[in-house]
């Protein structure tokens, strides 16, 4: 295809992506270098018969004017990145100097908002991804062995948790595990503790969110693997059977290697989607114990009346860097493949 024709064909799509994905990243970066204006204070002196008094008041008009003139705020350089709500270098330095053991040190770091969110996001991603891949593979093998009549309906049922709106899906589960819901009430009955709540402790909240994550993404890995199973060549399976391989050996040495390219595809997709975990925290109102990177950005933007654009921008930039690090192995491999093909 000629360069000229290519440009015309790709133009609408490229324009949309440049305007609403690439430029916003630039805009986020610029925002992150600024902080909101401080309020303009006026000191007025009122002198009476008993001497002079100084009083400070907020000059609303001047503050408003300043905000209108420079909506970005005032320049702060990388200050927002290293303040307490983000990378918190100063606090970590203090913690490193003052704590005796590693566990104490990590405890202090774990209480800093950014690192807390990062920890939850990473733990969520690191648990949900492998569990979903293993269970997905097991269920795909199970469904593949079902009688033909049952395969369609089982796929239909499995698609529901995956395609349902994340916010709605997590609400449905939340209403069930809530103190008065069917599962929550049953758990209270079993442990004979009417105040037991899954939201009470950090560990339980994290578990609840991770269980939701598995429920929501398992169908994706299951269906991808199931489709892959349909392409396993029959003659190789036959040959392995003739050679005396048991069913288990055939699965392990023929089927699983055949699915390996799929495993890396599913891992990539799951990593991308799990890293942006957000809606379940809103639905479960779990923010007391579990906050993800996406959630703290949302929270900064929701700050009523005076959204913290600078802070949200800084967290966004750090999150984007995280995504790139996460994708780096894939990008490097694609780059190598491409070069090999080119030469």
């Amino acid at each position: 295809m000629k360069h000229r024709t290519f440009v015309w064909f790709i133009l609408p799509s490229l324009a949309a992506m440049t305007l609403f994905i690439a430029l916003p990243i630039v805009s986020v970066f610029i925002q992150s270098l600024f902080v909101g204006h401080e309020q303009v204070l006026v000191v007025s002196k009122s002198c009476g018969p008993f001497g002079c008094q100084e009083s400070t008041a907020i000059d609303l008009e001047a503050t408003e004017k300043l905000r209108e003139e420079a909506p970005l705020g005032r320049f702060n350089g990388l200050g927002t990145y290293i303040n307490r709500s983000h990378l918190a270098f100063a606090e970590i330095g203090v913690a490193w100097a003052e704590t005796e053991t590693f566990s104490e040190f990590w405890k202090v770091v774990g209480d800093l908002p950014f690192y807390r969110a990062l920890a939850f996001t990473l733990v969520y991603t690191a648990i949900v991804t492998p569990v979903v891949i293993l269970l997905g593979l097991a269920i795909a093998l199970g469904v593949n062995a079902l009688p033909k009549l049952l395969k369609g309906p089982s796929i239909f049922v499995s698609l529901l948790p995956f395609l349902v709106t994340p916010l709605v899906g997590s609400l449905i589960l939340f209403w069930m595990v809530d103190g008065d819901g069917v599962i929550g009430a049953t758990i209270q009955l079993i442990f004979n503790d009417p105040n037991l709540s899954l939201k009470a402790s950090a560990a339980l909240t994290w578990t609840m969110l991770i269980v939701y994550g598995i429920w929501h993404t398992l169908p994706f890995s299951f269906i991808t693997f199931y489709a892959g199973l349909q392409t396993v060549p029959d003659d190789i399976l036959e040959a392995a059977k003739v050679d005396g391989a048991s069913k288990w050996e055939r699965t392990l040495h023929v089927v699983v290697p055949h699915l390996m390219p799929l495993v890396s595809f599913v891992t990539l997709m799951l990593l991308m989607d799990n890293f942006r975990v957000f809606e379940p925290i809103v639905s479960f109102s779990a923010e007391a114990h579990a906050r993800s990177l996406s959630w703290i950005i949302y929270n900064d933007l929701r700050e009523s009346g005076n959204p913290l654009y600078g802070s949200a921008g800084a967290t966004s930039m750090l999150t984007i860097i995280g995504v790139v690090i996460l994708l780096a192995p894939v990008l490097i491999r694609t780059w190598r493949d491409f070069n090999r093909k080119a030469h």
Partner: peptide
């Protein structure tokens, strides 16, 4: 592919202002 991986909220924080 990189754009696909971007959490949507990071983009939204660039739109608002």
């Amino acid at each position: 592919l990189v754009f696909r991986a971007m959490p949507h909220i990071t983009l939204v924080s660039g739109y608002l202002l």
